[in-house]
Structures are given as C-alpha cells and as structure tokens.
Amino acid sequence: MNECLVTIQEYALRSLGIGERMLPRGDFTLCQQITLIGSGLLWNLYFAAFALLIGFFLANALALAKTSRNPWLRKPAEWFIFVFRGSPLFIQFFIAYEALVQLPRTGIPLLGLTLPTDWMTKAWAGALLVLVLNTAAYSAEIFYGALRNLPKGELEAADAYGLSGWTRYRRIMWPTAMRLAWPAYTNEAIFLFHATTLVFFSGFPALRQQGDALYYASYFADKTFNPFVAYPIVAGFFILLTLLLITLFGVVNRRLNRHLPGATSKVRYRPNLLR
C-alpha cells in the first residue's frame, strides 16, 4: 500500500510533466497502471472540458447564423456544419495536423507583429481546435433544430409583450431552445468526451511521453503483452466519468426546467443517439 502511495506521488501528474521523468520499465504493478492511466486521463478531461466550453458558444453563433435569412451568414454556417458532421473526426484530425504543420514556423507577420504558429501543431492546441470545431458543428445542428421547434405560442407571446430583436432572442428564444436541446446536447457531450480517446491516434505526436489515457494504456499493453488489464482500466475510468457527466448535465437540465411542474423530481436520463 505504501509502495502504491509512492507510485501515486511519482506518477499522478506524469502526463503534465510533473514527477518522475522516466516511465516504469519492467515489473509493472497494477498500481502503476491505474495511476499512470489516470494521469493521462487529465488530458482527456482537459480536451473534453475546453472543447465543450468553447464549442458551446461557437455552436450558438452557428445555429443562429443557420436560421438567418441572410445567405452570407446562412450558407457558410450550413457548409461548416455539413463538412464537420459529414466526415469522420479521425480524418479531421489527420488533415488538421498535416495542414497546421504547413504554417510557416517563424510565425505569420500581421500588422507589424509576428504571430507565432509553432504551438498550433501541439496536441493541446491543435487537437483541441479540431474537437472544438467538431463539437460546435454537431451542437449547432442540435441548437438549430431546437430553434426551429420553438413553440409558436411563446414567440407570439413575446411579440405581444413588445419584445423584439436581441431581447426577444435572449429572454425567450434562447432559454427555451436550450431547454428543448438539452437532452440531445447531453448526448453530444458524452460522445465528445469519448471522442477524446481518438487524440491518441490523431497524428499529433506525444511529447516527452506525456500522453492521454490511451497513450499509457497502450504503453502498458505493449510492454506487458496483456491488453486485458490496461484497457479495462481505461474503460472503468470512462464509465465513472461518464456517470459524473450525466449527473452534471442532469443538474443543468433540472435548472432549465425548474419552472415546469414535476421538474423538481429526478430527471430520468434517456439515452438517445442523435449524433
């Protein structure tokens, strides 16, 4: 047990470059595997959290652009959503990496300043960018569907109260759209969280042996020749965190629906497959 505490001390933050520099070489203990894979999971959490956060705002803008009557706004939004929803994330990762490394390494001169570009090919930025754009496209489609399905009565009521333009959107349309979209959006969040495992295969290289959960899992699987330990550990971590995610989104859902009768009771999560 004490040995395991030492391992945790050495490796719990290994994926961030804190702690022991060399990875374990032989005689892998279960404790080492759980600690290092858990350490790699920090990256999966980082990718999921930031992609969802940034993607959420981008998705709202895109959904609004897609409902716009102005073709200059609508067409680009439609194309963006089509390209990112119509192609595999895996391929998007490859293309993004190959495209980002073509940027001039010395930086792009802009208005006398030089924009540095080399950080774009690092996984923390490049892979995050792809995940943001990807989830933005899927979420935008969900929000767009919700905006189109707003009850007519609510819009008429808003008109009757003299609300218009931005105020009408912010006070009436947006909250209702979120309420309608939330179950599907929960689903998208789970998909995205699971999709962070793809970063390992994405072409973005692992730097200083600091990788995500799958990086360490495959390290152990390759070294111990036994995939029946490392991968189930990853699976276990993901089940726990998915349950946590569902709980968090359930709290938000209850808040969104708090004015409706019966919403205070526990919301039963119904998985649906809208991606």
């Binding site: 699971h194 495992t197 995939p227 990853v234 699976a235 349950l243």
Partner: peptide, 19 residues
C-alpha cells in the same frame, strides 16, 4: 445496451478482436 454509453467505442476495438 448500456455499456456503449460509458465506454468509448475505440476501447472495444482495441480489446475485442484480441479477446
């Protein structure tokens, strides 16, 4: 039916064929 909700599909792909 509920296992796919908690576990990324890729983990299955790394695991199932060998198993």
């Amino acid at each position: 039916t509920s296992m796919v909700r908690g576990i990324p599909d890729i983990i299955f792909f790394l695991f199932v064929p060998i198993a």
